[in-house]
Design a protein around this nucleic acid. Structure first.
Lengths: 166, 166
DNA sequence: ATTGATAATCTCAACGTTGAGATGACACCA
DNA sequence: TGGTGTCATCTCAACGTTGAGATTATCAAT
């Protein structure tokens, strides 16, 4: 079988046989898959009345454990967005009652973002279905292939310096 | 070794041991890698005076072969963006003299976007270095691992229906 | 020929992100 | 205690994309 990227590399081989474009076989597929997955996830969360980024923030807070709060800085690192984006996201989620800003701590520069009872309830009810949905997207792979793929991606992520989030 | 996603799954296992979050090991890494790669590519093209999307359009036209022209529809499918985005991109690239719109064909609804001599020269000089740059990002993988990874990603891309571009 | 359905592109307002800079707070050293 | 550098967050204008609708063209059936 062949996919869209096979067509791309075949074209390059015909037009520029002097160049071995093998890296596109990985980078290109990674990029396209990421877009397609993102679309599916967006659709899934929309069906449950949530924006993609909202679940992302809720899940980051939830998995950090009680009392379910993190600084804005920790959230922006986890989401890989800029500080402006996180401020905006928290503003909107605070207005919807999903999280709240807490400012009592020792360092008054930092803000702690805390899950509200409503936010906790929503994320706890949705993690399971979300994982099931992701599993559906990966159904084409067998158990051994999943482990293999995860392992190869881990090697790359490490080589890019993507370690820890705290 | 471990990466940021290992930290995420470890947190979930502690907080919600009832849920097996293995799909995150793939979807999460794919997403993060895609963002990191995108940043690197953006930086690379900036060093060569190009926007990321500009190279994308130039390369799509170049690899289609002489006379290096495609419809706007073909370009938006290849780039996976909406029609509004492609119109905007072509507008700006036309203003910079990288491509030109040609409207003579049989179907007067469609517009053919053609590489200008300048656009052709730029893309032909940059494909090689671009591929080298991508290879650098993948240097952590050995030859056999690359093939394995490309193959696994192809399976997923096919299962998502991502075939052909024409 | 006329109608209706589909297709390809363009238009444009709404939206979210980026990136640079402002603000306020902390830490260290003199 | 004053000064300097760094840090965490917020502010905001610029920018690009989305998504819906408008426009113009083609095709099939009658």
């Amino acid at each position: 079988m062949s996919d869209a990227v096979d067509a791309v590399t075949a074209q390059w081989n015909r037009e520029r046989p002097d160049i071995d474009v093998w890296p596109m076989g990985i980078v290109g597929r990674l990029s396209r898959l990421s877009i397609l997955f993102e679309r599916e996830l967006k659709e899934f969360f929309a069906r449950h009345g949530l924006e993609r980024f909202e679940f992302d923030v809720l899940a980051t807070l939830r998995r950090s454990g009680a009392p379910y709060e993190l600084t804005a800085g920790a959230l922006l690192k986890a989401a890989m967005v800029t500080s402006g984006a996180i401020t905006n996201r928290i503003d909107r989620m605070e207005a919807k009652g999903l999280v709240e800003r807490v400012r009592d701590g020792g360092d008054r520069r930092s803000v702690r973002i805390r899950l509200t009872p409503r936010g906790l309830e929503i994320v706890d009810g949705l993690v399971g279905p979300h994982v099931d949905n992701e599993a559906r997207l990966l159904a084409a792979l067998g158990p051994a292939e999943r482990d293999q793929l995860a392992g190869l991606l881990r090697v790359l992520l490490e080589s890019m310096g993507d370690t820890s989030l705290t």
